[in-house]
Nucleic acid binder design. Structure first.
Lengths: 153, 153
DNA sequence: TAAGATTGATATATCAATCTTC
DNA sequence: GAAGATTGATATATCAATCTTA
């Protein structure tokens, strides 16, 4: 084993900055969405549904698109069905499957929330970055995501 | 109002990369901690406690140090007290206050989990970044945090 | 057997309401 | 009244167990 390699000062600074971002940015965007009538989880699912033909997606595919586990989706969709944002239907091709369909109320809800969300995303993120910074950040995130994905294999 | 300014392709790319990071990095670090016996929330609180004199901090101050709401801390400490990681004591100076003290079991728990956590932090973050990238990222995060903090005032 | 999906239990986060003490 | 803290209700996330169908 041996003594672990602790973070030096420069490394600590960036790590704390990233933790701070994680702790402050997402809650702020979530609050913005809530004010406009949707939770972050609801918004996450309504985006791909609103872009799909007929607002219809198979649960399995929706899981993949948003990077969620099936169980998480199932619980969340149950709550959203109660709110009238989506409905579940049988899958014609595969009797195991389940289809999620956006309701008119669901479409109205995301159309009401989207402009405020993109505005907040700009105000607290995109519009604060230079073009170069955007490119650096994209490269860094992709590198980390690749490392995380490689680990799974 | 007017039509909102949607994200262009470059902006969408970085935004999705950051969302992906948010969705994959933190859960991976959390899983690592869980394997070593602590949840992310427990680790977050045990770090400042283990660095405090006598492992003792006032609830109010612990809140500030980790950026949590009082209610959140209160619930979390209640669970950790049940697990034997901390105990609550009366505050001598201020009868309204509440002191949180690290137990020997709590100290043992964080000392067992810390090496694995710093190793995972290195593997999936720090060691994947160049010095220049670290500096860019620090600047960007601080700028965003400043914008978020300014908004509150 | 594996894939798709649901369910129940537990841990966590947020909010409003409350209570005590400053 | 404001600050510090707790509590209960609700929403969310994760895990294990289960069920059905491929």
């Amino acid at each position: 084993m041996g003594e672990p390699r602790w973070l030096d000062e420069r490394e600590q600074r960036v790590w704390r900055a990233v933790i701070g971002l994680h702790q402050k940015l997402w809650p702020e965007l979530e609050r913005q969405l809530i004010r406009d009538g949707l939770s972050g989880a609801e918004f996450t699912l309504l985006v791909p549904l609103s872009e799909a033909p007929d607002g219809l997606l198979r649960a399995r595919d929706l899981c993949r698109m948003v990077g969620w586990e099936r169980s998480r989706l199932s619980h969340q969709v149950a709550r959203m069905e109660k709110r009238g944002l989506v409905v579940r239907e049988a899958c014609a091709d595969d009797a195991r499957g389940s289809m999620i369909r956006l309701t008119p109320a669901g479409r109205a809800a995301i159309e009401a929330a989207a402009p405020g969300h993109v505005a907040a995303t700009r105000r607290y993120f995109v519009d604060l970055l230079s073009g170069e910074e955007i490119d650096v950040l994209t490269r860094v995130c992709d590198r980390i995501l690749t490392a995380l994905a490689d680990e799974k294999r």
